[in-house]
Amino acid sequence: MWWRKLEEKIIYLLMVISVASLVILLLAVLTSIFVKGAPYLSWEMVSQTPKGGYYFGREGGVLNAIVGSLYLSLGAILLSLAFSLPLSLAMNIHLRARPKIVNRIRFVLDILWGIPSIVYGAFGFTLMIYLGIKASLLAGIITVGIFIMPIMVRGMDEVMKNVPVSLIESAFSLGSTRMEVAFKVMVRQTIPGIATAILLAFGRGIGDVASVLFTTGYTDNVPTSLTQQTATLPLAVFFQLGSPIPEVQNRAYASALILTVIILVISIAVRFLSNKYYSNRH
């Protein structure tokens, strides 16, 4: 019996270590970014665009990248929403009676979800050339919009699946058209869930490099139209880190910190929203 007890003790220890390592790894990643980035974070970093000589260590900030990232993600969210929302509504209302088709759509979405962002980037680039547009905010929005679409649909589908059938049926029996059921019942019922899905997609969109590497270009200015090039935060981190000049590298760390903070804020918002959603339902 002693070896069985010993085995169980060892396994238990390994399990505790594994779970603890999750926390430790998270803290390790966050602390290293904070420790390295915080000393170089200044008001100038977030309020100014790069000035002449910025990339040799002169003054300026990454406002262009911050604003560019926000524009890009917001644009992508809007574009993606035009696809995701009708699709998730259709899967849960119009096609409710045809589970086979719905399952097939879910399967395709899972595949899309699994395709790496670099492939979306390559596809976006091809599409861009085919459509005859240059690297720009618009091209980036299209690429990221396609890339986050499956993430958004999955989130929305997840909450819409759980809306009680009886609710939908009773809405139909009152004489509502499918569209009225969709927007007046389904959307209203699942608003926090939809918001969560949007935020999750936003987080993925704002943090990704590989999909925008070839499609947005890079500029030191804040873009003023869709056809202009734009910088993004992750790209700013990536490019500045590649510089041999220490001052510029330090700014990369500061930019990484800004990006991390944005992601943390999104995570907290998601948690808050989904807690609210679930406590409302029970």
């Binding site: 990643v29 943090g207 490099v209 990006l259 991390t260 992601i263 948690r271």
Partner: peptide, 17 residues
């Protein structure tokens, strides 16, 4: 939340780390 945040951290940040 620990798992969710780990999942949410962008890959460029993991690269910096």
């Amino acid at each position: 939340p620990v798992i969710d945040i780990l999942a949410g951290i962008p890959s460029v940040i993991y690269g910096v780390w």
